[in-house]
Write a protein that binds this DNA or RNA. Structure first.
Length: 222
DNA sequence: CTCCCGATAT
DNA sequence: ATATCAGGAG
């Protein structure tokens, strides 16, 4: 079976399991999503949602103007529990200033404009573009996508740019947005980093790691 | 490549 | 104690 064929089968199974996937981060505006994704670096979605709930909803701080006018230390306190809080606070403030100066406080759609914002890379830009406007110039590659594609045997290596390019070769374009959701959901539910639950994994027959592990444990699944 | 860094599961 | 969590910049 070619990798393209394998990908199609994996997508079919995961689509059946998860349906139309939704964003795990809570937001009400493009700017809120941009901030939420920025905060999600090396942090769980759950923790990000706790922080953004407090910041956006309870305190009502959710616009570029507000963040641009705030003291850096104040933003640091708000986002502290997500980790990397000094970088994240600085980036949110800087990005807010850029949005006000260049884009009238709105989040631009173009990839090249998004990645020029502070602390916004291809991954964050892909999430925002896909989630807000349904645009898929590329495929979101995060820690889960990286881990699962390597375990399954679709990808070798951990360079996110290369992973994205190779995935774009084997994933049909209409699934460029959903494939990341599927792999992330499966990655959090079943194929967790510490101890992948291969014996109850719906796609273990397509997975190099899963097949090997189950064979070793004498659980023949062929 | 290193650094940023708190919360949580194991 | 340690690995891991929707990464990005220098």
């Amino acid at each position: 079976m070619t990798k393209k064929q394998k990908v199609k089968k994996i997508i079919a199974v995961l689509r059946e399991k998860f349906g139309k996937p939704e964003c795990a981060l809570n937001y009400e505006t493009p700017f809120e999503l941009l901030v939420a994704v920025s905060l999600s670096a090396q942090c769980t979605d759950k923790r990000v949602n706790i922080v953004t709930e407090e910041m956006f909803r309870k305190k009502g701080i959710n616009t570029p103007k507000q963040f641009a006018e705030m003291e850096l230390e104040e933003i640091e306190t708000l986002v502290r529990s997500t980790g990397f809080y000094k970088n994240k606070a600085k980036n949110i403030k800087k990005t807010s200033e850029i949005l006000l100066e260049k884009y009238d406080g709105e989040v631009p759609q173009e990839m090249d404009k998004l990645v020029e914002l502070a602390g916004v890379g291809r991954k964050t830009a892909n999430v925002v573009r896909g989630q807000i406007w349904g645009l898929a110039e590329g495929i979101t590659v995060d820690t889960h996508v990286k881990r699962l594609t390597n375990l399954i045997g679709l990808i070798k290596g951990d360079n996110p740019i290369i992973i994205e390019r190779e995935l774009m070769e084997m994933v049909p374009r209409e699934y460029w947005i959903d494939i990341s959701h599927y792999l992330i959901l499966q990655g959090r539910d079943v194929c967790v980093a510490r101890r992948p639950q291969c014996d109850r994994c719906e796609i273990n027959i397509f997975c190099n790691f899963g097949r090997k592990k189950l064979k070793k444990e004498g659980k023949n699944n062929s």
